Simulated assay, not measured.
Amino acid sequence: MSFSLLQPSFFMSKTKSYAQILIGSWLFLTAMAIYFSLWVAPPDFQQGGNSRILYVHVPVAWMSIVIYIATAINSFLFLLTKHPLFLRSSGTGTEIGAFLTFFTLVTGVFWGKPMWGTFWVWDARLTSVLILFFYLPGCIVFSKSFSVELASILICVGLIDIPIIKFSVNWWNTLHQPGSISRSGTSIHVSMLIPILSNFANFLLFTCIFFVLETRLLILSFLESSLTEEIEAREVNKD
């Protein structure tokens, strides 16, 4: 298996070349997402202005799932290859995933209070997302206190919760509404679908940029420590 694409020099040169494009695209998507969410999308007939929370809640919920799957893939690749970039990506993904899952719960709580009359119910989807939220910090603790290999295995095992989150509204009679987007189409009007998709693209690009910056910092830190060790070794040899 070739790791030429994972070479630090290749990664640093390519990310530097496209950094302005990535950041510019993210700023454009942010402006468009805010515009669509606040001024283009009409208030829902039943939910009123409270429906605008869904333009953030739904994309963040999607992103939390995408991030966890990506983190599990990186963890699996680290177990196979022991490559440090996979380990770093897995660690960063775990931290971002925990934040996004928490944000999913918070936005859901603020939407649920006026719609359901309560901040929290032990709904199947809400409960499975809450389990994922507590699971991610647990993996972080295992990584720092025990071993990164064990944490990587736990992250892979945690994939079991993803289909439960996805299909819980179909498997059980839950308070949470069923999915509005499927392979057969969507029941969401285009005026409301565009803000959701634009926010999802915005969160996705921001996460990619964050991963790139984290990896660049890791590489720079490694190069700095290697340079320091080399200078110290040369001074010792002179003495």
Rank of each mutant, 00 (worst) to 15 (best):
S184D: 12
G185P: 00
T186F: 02
S187P: 05
S187Q: 05
H189N: 08
V190F: 07
V190T: 12
V190S: 10
S191V: 13
S191F: 07
M192D: 15
M192K: 15
L193V: 05
L193P: 07
L193E: 03
I194T: 12
I194H: 00
P195H: 00
I196P: 03
L197K: 03
L197G: 07
L197R: 00
S198N: 02
S198A: 12
S198Q: 05
N199K: 00
F200T: 11
F200M: 02
A201L: 15
A201C: 15
N202D: 08
N202A: 09
N202R: 08
F203P: 06
F203D: 02
F203C: 05
L204G: 07
L205V: 11
L205K: 07
L205N: 08
L205T: 09
F206C: 11
T207G: 01
T207S: 06
C208W: 06
C208F: 14
I209S: 04
F210A: 11
F211P: 01
F211Q: 03
V212M: 06
L213N: 03
L213R: 05
L213G: 02
L213I: 15
E214T: 12
E214M: 11
T215Q: 05
T215A: 09
T215V: 09
R216S: 10
R216A: 10
L218P: 01
L218E: 12
S221K: 14
S221A: 12
F222L: 13
L223K: 15
L223P: 08
E224A: 11
E224L: 14
S225I: 06
S225D: 09
S225A: 14
S225P: 00
S226Y: 07
